[in-house]
Nucleic acid binder design. Sequence first.
RNA 1: GGCCCCUUCGUCUAGUCAGGUCUAGGACACCAGGUUUUCAUCCUGGCGACGCGGGUUCGAAUCCCGCAGGGGUCACCA
Length: 545
Amino acid sequence: MSATPAPHKPVVTRFAPSPTGNLHVGGARTALYAWVVAQQAKRNLGPFKDHSSGGSFILRFEDTDRARSSAASERQIAESLLWLGLDWDEGPAIQGVPGHETATGDRGPYRQSERLPIYHDHLARLRDAGHVYDDDGAVRFRVTQDVTFTDAVYGQVTVKADDIEDFVIMKAKADGDDLAFPTFHFAVVVDDALMDVTHVIRGVEHLANTPKHAALYDALGFPRPLWCHTPSIMNPDGSKMSKRDKAKAARKAAAERSWPAPPVTNIDGFHERWADFRDKKNDDAGIASIVLRSLGLGVPEIDASDFRATGYLPKVLLNYLSLLGWNPGGDLERFGLDQLVDAFDLSRINKANPKFDRDKLLEFNRLAIAEMTTEQFNDLLWAFCEPRYGTDGAEWSDAKKLIYSKAYHDRARVLSDPAKASSFLDPPDDEVAPSENHYDPKATKKWLMKNDTQGLTDLEKARDTLAAVGDDFAPEAIEAALEACVAEHGMKNLGSVAQPLRVAVSGSAVTPPIHLTLALIGKAETIRRIDACLAVFKDAAKAEG
RNA sequence: GGCCCCUUCGUCUAGUCAGGUCUAGGACACCAGGUUUUCAUCCUGGCGACGCGGGUUCGAAUCCCGCAGGGGUCACCA
């Protein structure tokens, strides 16, 4: 078995999703592998080192299930693919996707619903040769022989004719249609053959269908492609990772809290949709996301767009996905697309279904963020945050944005982390006078009240020091002033002032580096919060003492 | 249930095709110690696997057979 076709034959791979939802991670990985193989052929790399055959990667929509297919889903899939950097050489026109609003390539149409006459031509050939028969308005293919085919990862597979049913290749014609629709089995074979596809790379769930496809290739007189089936990506509990996981998570969370009724009212018919959803009449991912978010919970990332929304870097997702069921053979784990194109080899794909490990993905993403410059992180972070979180009307200066980026550059794992960790930036609530409730009890005890309120004493000194810092309140100036304060008063270390300050301005003992935190809050607000804190705890100390 | 596929640390895996160099290597997670203004980082160390049972062989994670467990498929869905 060889993954290398004859030198004169260009390599053609394709990604052929049915547009019935977003791009699932499993689909993303399949698309990646197909894209990589085409790249290798184009650039004479990997298994194609000595072949100048050329290659191309086709995007085709398998929309023979008209009830579930949608243009919106086509757009989402295309956008996710582009976000990942997996552009295609040939594909259909997709409205609303810049760069792809007109079709490219001359092997189209690239939508099965637009290829109906082609299927009927080939059906006629099959009929003439006696390979098919009618059944209740549908057309079935007659399986008469055992089938043996070779798969790049599973090796040689043989299935007996008795174990393959006579399967439907043309559905019964629906009312109002001119032509009947083919089933997936017939459409893929005809399309892949006519589009000169050499490598059919897809999920293992299709392995059991492949004997049917091989039989069809033979009956139609088409040369068979090299099949390559990739294992399914599983959840940590061993179940298949699927869109339904969102619905499951939402129902479970709602049930655990005895969630009475959704607080969402501005969406048309939400309550009815929620009721149906709760009663398991559907697994609407949109409803699931709304429910989960209303409960303050994260939505499990399943689709490429989910990972994008959380703030994963596309190259990291690709890196991690490529490693799920494949590896270059040594200890190398973190690499970019170019290295992947260099090293990839279909025959090294594992057969067992891997489990998706979010911790490892998170760590890879953290490392990738840490490796870029603060300026790069700054650009990325704000490009990510601004469309998502808005600016609350108050525009931040570039300088302030950069300070924020510095504060989170080496502790953000995903781009949404900083927004979650920076509640200390929330504007003060003028309605409520500060009280002990604003402060974490453990933190106040340890950093303010301990040793006869030593923390409060140090905090007062820090306050005066900060009040003397210039009004631009730059991080460097703050840092220098606090260090001088520590030295002048013979304090143990910077923590002596940093910790009480953290508690005073944020209510907790955890924030980014203190000088960045204070600079972000601003001078006036910093002083105001310190004074409020001192007032609260001085009184408390007096009452006790 | 029929048919097909899979099985190395908790997880992803290297090693299996060409049996010895594997008292099984790496990464993530976890645990302990150290550095550090908190958190995080960083450094050092640690825990931890060949599903089970037979067989072949001087020798098996690697080859053979059986079992168990997991997955897929059996649609006019893809």
